[in-house]
């Protein structure tokens, strides 16, 4: 007889840095232990949701079922172009670049 007990997922809220550049917002999230293939970043109704499962104690071993989840949501400002969002994962840090819509970019006006 097997007794299957499913552990309740526990949410971890990752620390975040946000830098604004003239052309984009650069969002960095610390999600150490997350595996690239299992990270999810999606935009729905102007909300960006990032989530990734992670094992207890940050174990990376494949045979340990993840029991916790990183999750954080962001409300996107009107100037974000949701069609051109770029994300990359390196050293346990997820970097998401949210480009601004062209009409919001600073323009140089030449003076005659």
């Amino acid at each position: 007889m097997t007794n299957e007990t499913r552990q309740t997922a526990h949410t971890l809220v990752p620390a975040v840095d946000i830098i604004e550049t003239p052309a984009a917002y650069v969002v960095r999230l610390d999600i150490p232990g997350a595996e690239r293939e299992r990270i999810s970043a999606k935009v729905e109704e102007n909300t960006l949701t990032v989530s990734a499962p992670v094992s207890a104690a940050g174990e990376v071993s494949k045979d340990i079922e993840p029991v916790r989840e990183y999750r954080r949501e962001f409300s996107l400002a009107n100037d974000v172009d949701v069609q051109s969002i770029d994300a990359r994962y390196e050293l346990g840090v997820l970097t998401i670049t949210l480009n601004k819509k062209t009409q919001y970019l600073p323009k140089e006006i030449s003076i005659n």
Partner: peptide, 24 residues
């Protein structure tokens, strides 16, 4: 500034890691 310009929906006590250090 940020909360008005680009509000983050959740601002709880965030964490840097599942556990900063674990020994097994």
């Amino acid at each position: 500034i940020f909360d008005t310009a680009f509000p983050v929906r959740r601002t709880p006590s965030y964490t840097n890691a599942p556990s900063a250090l674990s020994m097994k």
